[in-house]
Amino acid sequence: MGIEFQNVNKTYPDGTVAVDQFSLHVPSHTSTVLLGSSGCGKTTLLRMVNRMVDPSSGAVLIDDEDVAGVEPVALRRRIGYVMQNSGLLPHRRVIDNIATVSRLNGVAKAAAHRRAHELMETVGLDSALAQRYPGQLSGGQQQRVGVARGLAADPNILLMDEPFGAVDPLVRLELQRELTRIQSELHKTIIFVTHDIDEALTLGDQIVVLKKGGEVAQIGTPQQIVESPADDFVAQFLGLDSARRTLSAAPRDDGGWFVSDAQGRPLGVVDSLPQHPGQNA
């Protein structure tokens, strides 16, 4: 069960091979992060799931059913999609934007609005914003609306394409925290695209590090990726080669330990160190 990419290739009409021979299993009720630099084929892969892109060869299966046989519009209505810059409809009020998918699915207006109000609460939006137009919201608020819209039809699958890529770092952290909380309650099957390693480590149960052309550099849990990067490429992505994740701890006068990376950048303070308080923590 879950989402299965079987040896997919996508060659665009202009000859660009965006993805080649890509296979991946995305287990149900967990979140998988596709991590890679811009242009490596993340969006292409994500869009194969809801048939915004059809693979040139290979197949994508949802719960063992090939999506190629599912009518695209119906398929999209049962899969949540959240994108960068929120993709909200500028001519619809916040409440109607969130209710969009329910309405498309034939839910009556009153019920769809009730559900939309619930979701505003779920994603931490003040209900006073319901009657605003998207242009009257901050970037962070717009992304929350985007997430609420993605959840509105209570889909099993949520596709998220760099949803927090365009908001400032502080708001981004807050949105990541909210998403983690929401996921701990709802247990959706999430595919989350990002080029931000820290975001990937925060949100992924499973991380897929991609090279150009959708080539898989490594698949693993955040811990596996950090502890044993498969090759120099992954190490570089993690910032290991620049010593970002090689930490050292020094005792503090007031007790506890001061932690910094190998370049001497201060990272934080810990109360105690595990068993072998050597050079590396």
């Binding site: 809801n50 915004m52 519009v73 119906a74 999209r76 209505r77 999609y81 994108m83 929120s86 993709g87 909200l88 409809l89 969009t100 998918v101 498309l104 699915n105 819209r149």
Partner: peptide
Amino acid sequence: LASTAVGY
């Protein structure tokens, strides 16, 4: 694109 993605 977004409206296509949500199922219009």
